[in-house]
Design a protein around this nucleic acid. Structure first.
Lengths: 173, 173
DNA sequence: CCATTTTAGATATATTCTATAATAATTATC
DNA sequence: GATAATTATTATAGAATATATCTAAAATGG
């Protein structure tokens, strides 16, 4: 038998069924203990990342941009004249998966593929004027709502320290 | 016309095709500039999380445990007598998706579902002896290889500060 | 120049993760 | 006892992620 001998004892601890979120709370189930989970960096990293992305989506919802799309537009603005492989590679996006993503951006007229004259296999990615405008508005929303909220929570110095450590992990780990 | 007037100029900057990673490097493409992307917390958060999970998988590969599976086993050990809804909810896993995950753990005899005597709708989750043993080995691998590597990269004080900030974001953001 | 190899983008496809709706069994509430 | 709510489950759909293959074009080496 592989089940713990204390299974019956475990059962005894199980609370009887009660209506939850229903007033006095005297019979509400106890919150679970995270225990060693709270010392596991990867766990908090993942939970924090989900929260941050969630907030990003809310803040930039008027422009209908995902974090990944925003990162592409930012990269195109900063690096004109680059092709799909270079942009996708820098962002850690696999080339096949980048195709549909670009289709989406291009169909919304945020960027265009331009056949390179130097190497006719490749597409230079170009921000459209609309793409530039949307990006500018997105930057303002992100700075004013999203990053501002993080700053309020952590404080500017902590936020900078956090960013530096995350970048170091992303780079060197 | 929506395409930037400088598209032709952008094209001019595109490097001619060259063999990459091929010796002298005089003609290698320049690395892309991240620009404002490196100030976006969510971006570094995501990239760091991927690296950390990747390393976790490597370190604990002999036991064939994913981060999510490890977190379930940890939580079962710390919180005996809980049912599926409570465990899944604490980890942010949706109940329907938790079913297949438990099937996997149960088929490997790492935990078992025990019908609760108090509420016969629910399954109390119980770590098996094998589950306890695997968890103990996993903890050692994680501490000795995974978290040790993070400590070496950041230093213990920074690692603690990072963890505290991530937990705060996960909790309060 | 020509044959071979390599690369860029695209397509197809598989896997995993995530999310919602609906169902059966059981329990709670009126 | 009738109605509503809850647990676990199934089915399913969508997104993210991964690999192999195809074509057109370009580079390489004779």
């Amino acid at each position: 038998m592989t089940v713990s001998k204390t299974a019956a004892a475990d059962q005894a601890k199980a609370s009887r069924p009660t209506r939850k979120g229903h007033g006095d709370g005297a019979t509400e189930g106890t919150a679970l203990q995270l225990g060693e989970l709270s010392e596991l960096l990867g766990y908090s990293l993942k939970r924090a990342q989900l929260k941050v992305f969630e907030d990003f989506l809310r803040c930039v919802a008027p422009l209908q941009l995902t974090p990944a799309q925003f990162s592409v537009l930012l990269l195109l603005e900063k690096n004109p004249g680059r092709n799909q492989t270079e942009i996708a590679g820098t962002l850690g996006i696999l080339r096949p998966n980048f195709v549909a993503m670009l289709d989406g951006l291009e169909s919304r007229d945020l960027c265009t593929r331009v056949r390179s004259t130097n190497d006719r296999r490749s597409h230079i990615l170009v921000l459209t004027d609309k793409g530039r405008a949307v990006l500018a508005r997105a930057k303002k929303l992100v700075a004013a709502k999203h990053e501002a909220r993080l700053n309020a929570l952590l404080g500017p110095a902590n936020r900078a320290a956090l960013l530096a450590m995350l970048a170091k992990i992303a780079r060197e780990f």
